[in-house]
Amino acid sequence: MKLNIQNETSRLRAVILGTAESNGPTPKVEDCYDPKSRLHVLAGTYPKEEDMVKEMEAVAEVLKKYDVTVYRPEVLENYNQIFARDISFVIEDKIIIANILPDRKFEVEATEYVWSTVAKEKRIILPDECHVEGGDVMPWNEYIFIGTYTGEDYPDYITARTNIHAVKAIQDLFPHKKVKAFELRKSNTDPKENALHLDCCFQPIGKDKAIIHKNGFLVEEEYQWLVDFFGKDNVFEITKDEMYDMNSNIFSISEAVIISEQNFTRLNTWLREQGFTVEEVPYAEIAKQEGLLRCSTMPLIRE
């Protein structure tokens, strides 16, 4: 397979979509990877497998409608494999296999049948000290935007997924790109004060627009840089509640077509006003795990 990802919005041709099949029982509170899952476990509202399977199949149908080749992970018994973006990501013609939480290493093996078809020199495994997940990495033409957290208390946050070693390693891999890192707000307990990944508080759409949540960024100047880069009139600012519902975590099939959650009324109205075709799907159950459409898709080829 010849990979090609230059940005977030060029016409999608091939993608890995996660799976909710055999997702396993509701996790224990102490085993949750993020504060939103923890909240729903405590409340007794953690999503049911059958509901999540239906939601993911709705996305698969939209992708097939647009003639996108869809790969799915090999199903592991009683294992959460929804968030395909966490475990690997593509920049240009290289696939980077993420160093993720140790408990999730089997997820990587479940998509090996796809990335093993890529030329060996194009498969990159970063050094052990580099922690990175695909939700923090956004190729945007001459830029690579990366969400990170560099506080000394990094080891204390299970929600801190991408470190500065990974940022430097990606810059070394792509010396011709401008790598721009953003410090994200982290909380192990409050999902409204936690940007788990960069795509939980920001995402470029179309050719020159973006969705953003100011409080997801620890450094106001870094948030302001993005607003200035895209232009204030091209930026859709989401509220704290909308970030909690994952409004920035939609997914572009092309510069003109976006898959979005059906309940994102304010966002979807704005998108249509901007001329986008919005394919609405139900995804509110999956959102309870602090991930949405971008998190559960991993693009392989855009053109």
Rank of each mutant, 00 (worst) to 15 (best):
E152D: 13
W115C: 07
E129K: 14
D86F: 01
K94N: 12
T26C: 14
V235R: 02
M298S: 15
I253F: 05
F202Y: 03
Y33L: 14
K209N: 07
A160L: 00
R161W: 03
R13V: 11
G291T: 08
F229D: 05
I95S: 03
A210T: 02
D34F: 07
Q203L: 13
N247E: 14
Y79L: 11
V41P: 02
N268V: 09
K36W: 10
D34G: 04
Y66H: 10
K65P: 06
F106M: 15
D34Q: 09
L271Y: 06
W115L: 05
E21V: 10
W225V: 08
I259W: 05
I286P: 04
E121V: 09
N234S: 08
R38Y: 05
C201K: 01
N247A: 15
E303R: 13
N234I: 05
E50V: 04
V75D: 08
K65N: 11
L198K: 00
C201Y: 01
E21C: 09
G134W: 00
V41M: 02
L198W: 00
R38K: 13
L12T: 03
D51N: 12
K207D: 15
S252K: 12
K65I: 06
E74K: 14
E77F: 13
K232G: 09
D93Y: 09
V53Q: 01
L3V: 07
V278A: 06
K186M: 04
D156W: 07
E109P: 10
V70D: 08
G151D: 02
Q224D: 12
V227C: 01
A98P: 06
V278L: 04
H131I: 11
K120H: 11
I170H: 00
N99D: 09
H131E: 14
P27A: 06
Q203R: 11
E220W: 08
L101A: 15
F106T: 11
R72V: 08
E74Q: 15
M56Y: 11
